[in-house]
Design a binder for these strands. Structure first.
Lengths: 345, 345
DNA sequence: TTGTAGGCGTTATCAC
DNA sequence: GTGATAACGCCTACAA
């Protein structure tokens, strides 16, 4: 092996004694359109195989203004929910010839903005984004530049950006209702990032369930500020410290639930005997926790597949999706972290 | 706002009535080198800010043969270990101006090969890879093309590719020794992908620990073929079905341990009372499992930081790292999944 | 059926 | 101090 240099079409052209255009046409499957002779085709293809030629997507991207690349902008790839999303997205994208450029925003607006620039500078064809907070200028900027963008999980309802998300309201409503049906009246809500749509919707579902069952909603029952274990832990401590401590806790995220469990463990409080717990979001460890956790499962795979499909179809057809909004159903997974306080009716 | 079009240097040049060269030089911080007048500089910079100019990395990449992009090729991004690696890598890379192109190989050689081509076609400057199996032609191909490459977690010892990994041998040795010290003699080993280095090393550590304690090693005690929950589950079933069933199980991966727990749960076997368990790899849920799992923790963050640093330094200096091999220490995290069979000496 | 030339946006080189 | 030009590798309208 002599060369350490990736062969270009020019190299092939020189070798077979033809022009670069012919090589390009053959290798792009346009031989028929140009009625290129069988012999020439064979010649070109053989040379390509022999040298292991593959097209330079950078050059092609510059020429075509299409890079076959999608930017994926998410808050925390180490969170099981988002890493599952990422896996499905990457897979779906690769099957259609797209590469995924990953950026982790750490739920920080500043980082989100920088990361977005990083992606735009690389001329990604489209974006899949789970934004930090409310509609922000930089996200809209991307849209204004006509970069196709689909929101995942978190979305804006005061804009016309397409999105795929979970029915967070219904999920939280179902979970809270379950707690109420089990006899709980004092139910704490451990929230995540307050500005994020999923959190708002979950909170709304929680409140609505209380209201529908004629239970007054106390503001002090809602605690927390971030989708993090430590935040769930601190929030749980605060709630359990209160005079009329809740008999049940609804955690708006899987990490939040984890923090709650740690707090309970530390206080010697048993779940569900002393405190009941439901966590939003399902994950492989939930059934093996102490106790097995009752959760609200999201259709992670469907979300990711649908969002990728919407975006890629958009990229290939040039037309924004007609069904702009997709809200997928959750499922209440009953396990063993909720106590029955009063006998069922 | 009139234009939906990302401004180019040409646009700026036209606006300020100067040549593209000047614009390029100012915006690349080479004003001093070319003694460009203060006034011109200000003019250019103002125009740039006004139009929100940012450089087109595709064009620049073509010209410079550097894309400021790193390919990350890992077996399973939904696995907590790898998603933690990915997060740290992405972070470190972005701080130095690099974007990460993510590919998930699903522990499939075919996919790995395709994904690698995808990355190479996009002219990534370097690669961070956790390969499927033994040194394979396509990985070596990348090296032959002088694309800097650092292996993470999984590596080859019959090549001179730099790598960062865990001391898997020692970790497994420590874990197995702990089981032995607790009085266990019949210890099963639930392995992952047999060809992968981490798995080989862990198996070797397990065997060595047995040997050092004069416990004969039975081949039938080693079960499993993939780093997956279902595989751990099936392997555990097989081991627990055997006539002289093990009193303890060592799972070579976190997902394997999860499968073991499910198998035990299903059989009504209690951990640690009926079977003891240690799992390689630590994760946030381990302390809250039933029972809290004794694990071998890997320094995930350090691995990822070191590997990124090695690669990026290599890219920027043009010189391969002098310290080619890095093996970081594990830590045995004692919890509650191992029973003491005989009183300590 | 094949070739030529221009350009995608940038930067390095050389000229003025 | 500034500008023109060529080139990175590819694609395509136009020419032959």
């Amino acid at each position: 092996m002599k060369s350490t240099h990736k062969p270009t079409m020019k190299d092939l052209a020189r070798e077979v004694g033809l022009s670069v255009s012919v090589v390009s046409r053959v290798l792009n499957g346009k031989a028929a359109d140009y009625r290129i002779s069988e012999q020439t085709q064979r010649l070109v293809r053989e040379a390509a195989t022999k040298h292991g030629f593959s097209v330079n997507q950078i050059a092609r991207g510059l020429r075509l203004q299409k890079t076959k690349t999608i930017g994926l902008l998410i808050p925390d790839i180490s969170n099981n929910f988002f890493s599952s999303i990422a896996r499905t997205v990457e897979n779906a994208a690769r099957r259609r010839g797209y590469a995924i450029v990953l950026c982790d925003t750490e739920d920080d607006e500043q980082v989100e903005q920088e990361a977005l620039s990083l992606l735009l500078d690389r001329s990604v064809d489209g974006l899949l984004v789970s934004p930090i907070g409310k509609a922000s200028a930089h996200i809209q900027g991307a849209c204004a530049r006509n970069v196709p963008l689909v929101l995942v999980d978190r979305f804006f309802d005061d804009h016309d950006i397409p999105y795929v998300t979970t029915n967070n309201f219904q999920g939280a409503y179902d979970g809270t209702s379950h707690l109420i049906n089990c006899g709980h009246r004092r139910i704490g809500f451990i929230q995540g990032l307050p500005d994020s749509k999923p959190n708002c919707e979950r909170l709304r579902g929680y409140r609505q369930a209380l209201r529908d069952h004629r239970i007054p909603v106390e503001d002090s029952w809602v605690q927390g500020a971030r989708f993090e274990e430590a935040d769930g832990y601190a929030s749980a401590q605060r709630l359990l410290d209160s005079l009329a401590a809740p008999t049940a806790l609804f955690a708006s995220s899987s990490l939040g639930a984890l923090g709650v469990m740690r707090a309970c463990l530390e206080r010697g409080l048993r779940i569900p005997d002393d405190v009941s717990l439901i966590g939003f979001d399902e994950y492989p460890y939930a059934p093996l926790l102490a106790p097995p956790l009752t959760t609200i499962a999201q259709p992670t795979r469907e979300i990711a597949e649908l969002a990728s499909r919407m975006l890629i179809d958009w990229l290939e057809t040039g037309e924004a999706p007609t069904d702009r909004v997709h809200v997928l159903d959750t499922e209440l997974v009953l396990r063993n972290s909720v106590a029955q306080l009063t006998p069922p009716a």
